[in-house]
Design a protein around this nucleic acid. Structure first.
Lengths: 350, 350
DNA sequence: CCCACCGTTTGAACCGATTCAAAAAAAGTC
DNA sequence: GACTTTTTTTGAATCGGTTCAAACGGTGGG
């Protein structure tokens, strides 16, 4: 293999100093026209492709790239709808800024290889930092990082997250305005199996997202005079489970069944609509459903789902800026959600 | 901001030489236990997180990461089904090897920023190198690269691609074995609008994929005594278009209508099945359909689509190995496709 | 007691660039 | 022509490591 051409070689060939050659590529306006051309010519003749990123990096310390890290295998980033959605936005934002994007996976079983410790990036976006593992790993590296989807009570970790409480509140208010009075909440990561869970169980969940959303729903309903106790929370269970089973209990007695379902995730809402359709219940004439997250599928379901959409773009912009512009959020930064009105909600049946 | 801790600082603190400190992290077996512990202790005390990747990179020249480049905006990699599918496999392969994955976008309009020239990677995987642009850009950088989805007659470019001809042949043979005699081919990137195109037009296409697939179909059918002229090729037109329109012409006369459709892409096949269902034609009882590509949706359509599946995993493995193990393919390397039998093909109607 | 050998450690060279104070050259001024 | 200014160019320091030949200290054999 032929020796690589270095800037020095080009400089020698052109009969100028190392420093001048560097200027030709980085601040051409400093170099006299004639010299600049001579250096360029030499570079061409030698097949020099421009300063190597590695050398530049070492000196400047800036990579101009961000790392997107997840505590999951890499392919997860392409399979999981939320990760994919946010990553798409992050990609667009990086693109617009001319920054690079590297994907990083860190699993506890497989902590070696290219990971948080060795990735050539200026900082990290952390996805799925439910467990402290990822955060601790990243802190050790000493690069700036922002946690997306932070799910902890710890408010010291720099994070860009969504206003679960406010979003849930808005969802409930929307249904209240439509005249609904009999609600049910559909949650996840609660209880052991499908079925109703008590407010106490909700309070005890380790998932801040779930807790805040529940509290948001309760708060809005309480304002309208509907106490927590009258709002059944049904969940699919911590280890997944069937939405149908959870709903079957809810709709066992049609007379007291809810007219409005507050789903803590679009996935749940979509499953609920499918189940309702199977039961001959019409959405939104008989039951209104509002989701949470704003996944792409929500726009194309039948009927299209009314949902609280996460501000994906703004999350991406804010967190990328945090790393690249050194504009780290002070602790947790909360972004509002948008209520997207579609066809799955309507006036309460009379 | 506090000064960063360098390996040198640790070495000094531990009272050893720079070189020994380096060995502690990279070849600990060379260092005496007592000294090793002393250095580790000093590192801990100073908050040193281990050798910085930047320095290491400069010396060793290896990044241990591959760049996935497309001549499209970055988000394309998450939106386009083919790109996403192959990227998922590439991600898994990289993960398994402990290698990094960086995403790179190079568009002619937006050639600045982090791109082929500046990405810190060991080599590139090129997606969508239909136009020479991407290839030329990459060649200039001087790093190894492999073109995926190469679509050119130029056989010098290192590439890992699929056996379009053989795949098409296998698809046609499958239908022949089921007794079909009246075929139609459904293509894309042919002609100006939806409708039939002549063999001459097919020969003239710039897309090697399309041409090779067509030739594969023709070759298999010719073996069974069905000449090119009896196989109508319908296409949706170069600028997209409606599959229904193309099919409507084909099925105008039910007596001479094909009993088997060879679609050059699953997308076309799925659209065709939807149209056929709309027309009251049953798949596969009335018409058999076989796709090409093996996109995930093909497995869950109704009926599930029989298709020639691309060997995504092998493409990923082969191309990643090419870069990281310096096992570049000699010119173009062709991988076979798998016929995946599902429910969209059946015996020819009698 | 000398020497060869082995396991450790050192020190300097090198990787490929950027940066900046200072020197050199060119251009103005009087 | 001598003196300022301004524009270019130079050369050395620096970034944070890795690597390797050589030096070193200790051991065992003869």
């Amino acid at each position: 293999m032929t020796k690589t051409i270095r800037l020095k070689d080009v400089a020698e060939a052109a009969g100028v100093s190392h420093g001048t050659a560097s200027n030709v590529f980085n601040r051409p306006e400093l170099v006299r026209d004639e010299v600049r051309e001579r250096v360029r010519e030499a570079a061409r003749a030698l097949g020099y492709a421009g300063p190597s990123p590695a050398g530049r990096l070492l000196r400047s310390g800036k990579v101009n790239a961000i790392g997107f890290a997840a505590d999951q295998p890499l392919d997860y980033l392409f399979r999981d709808p939320w990760a994919r959605r946010i990553l798409t936005e992050v990609a667009e934002v990086c693109d617009a800024r001319g920054a690079g994007l590297a994907l990083v996976s860190v699993t506890e079983e497989h902590p070696t290889g290219w990971n948080i410790e060795s990735a050539l990036v200026d900082g990290f976006l952390l996805s799925g930092s439910g467990r402290k593992f990822l955060v601790e790993m990243t802190q050790r590296r000493g690069l700036p990082f922002v946690s997306l989807s932070l799910d902890t009570r710890d408010t010291d970790v720099p994070a860009v997250c969504i206003d679960d409480f406010g979003g849930a509140q808005a969802a409930a208010r929307h249904l209240l305005e439509l005249g609904h009075r009999r609600f049910a909440v559909l949650g996840f990561a609660l209880g052991d199996g499908p079925g109703r869970v008590t407010p106490r169980e909700v309070q005890a969940t380790r998932s801040m997202n779930v807790l805040e959303r529940a509290r948001g729903y309760w708060a809005a309903l309480a304002e309208a005079g509907i106490p927590e106790a009258e709002v059944p929370v049904h969940a699919i269970g911590r280890n997944g489970g069937n939405v149908g089973e959870a709903l079957a209990l809810l709709f066992a007695d049609r007379a007291t069944a809810p007219t409005a379902i507050l789903a803590m995730a679009d996935r749940l809402a979509l499953a609920a609509m499918a189940w309702l359709e199977g039961q001959g219940l019409r959405v939104p004439q008989d039951v209104s459903v509002v989701g949470f997250d704003g996944v792409p599928e929500a726009a194309s379901s039948t009927p299209p789902l009314t949902t609280m959409e996460q501000p994906y773009r703004r999350i991406a912009e804010r967190s990328v800026a945090a790393i690249l512009d050194d504009a780290m959020p002070e602790g947790r930064e909360v972004l509002p959600l948008d209520l997207v009105l579609r066809a799955s909600t309507g006036p309460a049946p009379s």
